[in-house]
Design a protein around this nucleic acid. Structure first.
Lengths: 340, 340
DNA sequence: CTGAAAGCGCTAACAT
DNA sequence: ATGTTAGCGCTTTCAG
């Protein structure tokens, strides 16, 4: 599978053609200071004439950097969070990376083989750092990378005491503000449909719900809490359960926008009116929120800010040997539309 | 942004520790034949003790290969085809690559800057080959890569006379079989909602529709053809138009499953029954088909086969200097569910 | 400001 | 079967 690229010009040939030394060409290529303008022009011309492109392997070897970062996600995450969140994050990270001259590599890990292969790839020095989409609690990947001394930043925590640098949204606060809003607007019986409770993010959103009730002095009724799994179907089913158990329900907080959309469907099918009769707020704010009927109120994560922060932390991590785990929790925002 | 990895063991240190030469260690690492078992074991032990991982930059430089392939897509494609097609292809290519020891890199190109950066990355030798998701007709990327002598395989053509190696599905044949099926089941007035007609794939599906009518000796009524853009919304709108213009319509062929789902919605809202009253067939077969009510009949692309073929062609392209453009058109399959 | 020279860590060809 | 050696193409001192 070896490839031969005949007649690919090297830096040396460029130097010869421009009548300068190799060091000078290297300086020009890397925009280093201290080259006379006329020399620089001559070199630039030679580069253009020869169609020279630096060999990245050689540069990596000599310069000990790859000029690339990987954004890794597991298949589970991908499906769970769905395309919108995923693609928004990719976009945000891409934007944040734009002027850093780094190549963004997406990697999907679906098996142990792929996990191992990726670790070898990363440890082999093909990327300068790794961004990890929120991984399940049991995923050993973050620690494998950290142990290998690779700059690594997580998007989302695995647990409350994560010993890796990460960026996360304020899930607790977001949920709390959503539920507080429902309470403030006079709703008395507020249910919640959670995410899978073995995921930290789902636990946080549930905690926010409880904190809001506590603050308002409202009793936390266990049967108003139903576990879902972030999917639309789980929203439909959970809502049906809730309506049966608590016909007097007048508000629902769902731990994802998808789940909220499912709940909305069931409510309408049951003849309940939203928001007059029952108010609904979801968490996360992607394609779906604007498409539901009525439009869904949600807690929005600051996606662009997440992207920028991920990149900034990774760069810091790359600068200095990691002496500390840095954690950034970004504020979320309650977006009111028609459903609450 | 340079990274220092202090104390990362090199092949040389492994050799010293195992008491052998560097060549031997290299052979062991690369599973080359001709090493005595006892020697191999000694080397393996040294590798394990030191936690040695090959430096991939050095390997690339010396071995002139990257052991990585890129799967590139443009943002337009991504949104257009939606997550299902995209993720299915990624999965299929990943599977096909599993035992080749190559790392799969996904790259999203959203701007000229990113396009240029990627070409430098690829020309710089960081990937052995490039897989391109079907690109718009005007996209210069395939030619840029081909000109640079990089093994490149397209998924989907840009035009009928594509001078790049590609894999495509039999869009014409698939559409033809769908429409023929509608004709065979006694439908007389068959409309079609196309994709954006500046895309070759959309043209092909429309051609298939026309060929089926022609073969059956049915007149091709221009007003039965409405241009959509593969989205669900375009399906809804086009269907509304069609119902107005041709109340007697009794079948629809939509150029995507998403569009078909939109058409289905509008039909039901208009009180038409599917399939008794109007039959519907879509093209492409992903999440949506099973979720619509009634379940959608579709033309299915052989995703796994596409993945395998892409990888096979790329490997062939890498073996020998490209002497010819190879084209593979894969058969599609009509999947009958409830809507037709 | 610029040229020369010393590696970066590995593979592959050549000795032994 | 294994050790030795010559690069791969670049960055980065270090002289000049």
């Amino acid at each position: 599978m070896g490839r031969r690229r005949p007649g690919v010009p090297t830096l040396e040939e460029v130097a010869a053609r421009a009548g300068v030394g190799r060091g000078t060409v290297s300086r020009v290529v890397n925009d280093a200071a201290g080259v006379r303008a006329s020399t620089r022009d001559a070199v630039r011309r030679a580069i253009a004439e020869l169609g020279y492109v630096p060999n990245l392997a050689a540069r990596s070897l000599a310069g000990r950097r790859a000029d690339a970062v990987a954004l890794v996600m597991t298949e589970t995450d991908w499906r769970l969070f769905g395309e919108p969140f995923f693609s928004e994050i990719v976009r945000a990270v891409g934007d944040a990376l734009t002027d850093s001259g780094m190549q963004l590599l997406l990697t999907l890990i679906r098996s142990d083989t792929e996990r191992r292969r990726f670790v070898e790839y990363a440890r082999g020095g093909r990327v300068d750092g790794v961004l990890l989409m929120s991984v399940r609690a049991q995923d050993p990947l973050p620690d494998m990378l950290a142990d290998a001394g690779l700059p690594t930043v997580l998007l989302g925590r695995r647990t409350g005491e994560e010993c890796v640098t990460y960026v996360d949204a304020d899930n607790v606060g977001g949920a709390r503000s959503a539920v507080s809003h429902l309470l403030d607007s006079g709703r008395g019986t507020i249910a919640t449909i959670t995410g899978p409770l073995d995921m930290y993010v789902a636990q946080c959103r549930l905690r926010g719900y409880r904190e809001a009730l506590l603050r308002a002095g409202v009793e936390d009724v266990p049967s108003l809490v139903v576990e879902g799994d972030f999917t639309q179907e789980s929203g439909r089913r959970a809502m049906a359960d809730l309506l049966e158990r608590h016909p007097g329900i007048d508000a629902v907080f769902a731990a994802s926008d998808t789940t909220a959309a499912g709940a909305l469907e069931t409510l309408r099918a049951a003849g309940r009116r939203v928001p007059d009769d029952v108010a609904v707020v979801g968490f996360d704010d992607f394609l779906l929120a604007e498409q539901t009927d009525p439009k869904l109120s949600t807690v929005r994560q600051p996606v662009d800010e997440i992207g920028r922060t991920l990149v900034r932390l990774l760069e810091e991590e790359m600068e200095e040997p990691a002496v500390a785990w840095r954690h950034v929790i970004l504020r979320t925002e309650l977006v009111l539309r028609d459903s609450a």
